[in-house]
Design a protein around this nucleic acid. Structure first.
Lengths: 190, 190
DNA sequence: AGCATAAATAATAA
DNA sequence: TTATTATTTATGCT
């Protein structure tokens, strides 16, 4: 009843072994069930912290010495890894995650510093406008988030974009304004 | 329709309001802080169940009547939604998620039946393109990085690959190029 | 053992 | 909401 793919290699993975009827520990005395449980838990805790596999891998590489790739984290979570490797990796992950959670309690900012990524890396803008156009649009938006029909027409003309496109841009801009605003709801992001 | 409207108007979103100094409840007496808390929690609980936004949306559409898109779930989680809409959506999500968790306790299989997806939808096997196919694809890509649906169908037919596989290849190819070149070559110019 | 990239998921312009 | 882009995850390969 294994949904874990069987690889071509000769060393079975944790995922393969743990699903075998008899197999809670393998011949080397490694508690596979425990590893499975931890892996599942690890993923949930990682997601609760809002971290990606890539972030974990990079942070581990920075603090723990050897390289931990995104692939490695992925394979651990999916148990697509040999018992020996899992056994070795588990305490490292456990320790690191516990510390990350500690930092997180002190604030999201602290966690991000611990992880080492940019504190507020913003999702890249979906590009349909040129950066130049965006800049101009934002300048207008700063001055007035709710331009009149006449103003929209003029902006569209200046940027040489379709009027409707500009109108929708302002709609979406207002909609999508994120939680950065403390005073004015329509304040522009820093 | 009682689906959550995302208006083009100037009604601020929960995310905008909740970050205002004074704003734990808005003028209509909606507890925004509570909604924010629930949204954050909802995401974690959803991920703990291993469900995607799409799955939640589809399941809700099936059991709750009106349409709930993946985007709607996404926007709720990000609080990119008006207080009124959030207030309306919250109990629906709460009820549904609680039930989903109940089914999950009875077993993963039950949850999947409740959600309505195929019980064991497997990830598509990773396609390996032949070097010849890659070469042809690149030739097409150089000529046109954004082929139409019709063109994709023809290319897929010529190469004898699945149409979807070819479509995704172009998506990823654009992505790769974008990441490499920094300059967006696909900007829509008026 | 991990890079390159295919596939899947989340976010967003229209 | 839909259709597409942006981001993340998973895996074929060597």
């Amino acid at each position: 009843s294994s949904s874990v793919p069987i690889t071509c290699g000769d060393t079975p993975t944790v995922g393969q072994l743990v699903s075998k009827p008899q197999g809670c520990t393998n011949e080397e005395g490694i508690n596979l069930e425990e590893i499975r449980e931890f892996a599942k838990n690890f993923k949930i805790r990682r997601l609760s912290l809002g971290l990606t596999q890539t972030q974990v891998g990079q942070a581990l590489t920075a603090t723990e010495g050897p390289a931990y790739s995104q692939s490695a984290i992925c394979r651990f979570e999916k148990l697509d890894i040999t018992p020996k490797s899992a056994q070795k990796l588990k305490p490292v992950l456990e320790r690191w995650l516990a510390e990350a959670e500690l930092w997180n309690q002190k604030g999201q900012q602290n966690l991000m510093e611990f992880v080492g990524g940019e504190p507020s890396k913003k999702r890249k803008r979906r590009t349909s406008f040129t950066p130049q156009a965006i800049e101009v649009l934002n300048t207008y938006f700063e001055k007035n988030a709710l331009p009149t029909g006449q103003e929209i027409t003029e902006i569209a003309k200046e940027l040489n974009y379709d009027r409707e496109v500009v109108r929708v841009w302002f709609c979406n801009r207002r909609q999508t304004l994120k939680n950065t605003s403390k005073i004015n709801v329509f304040q522009v992001q820093p």
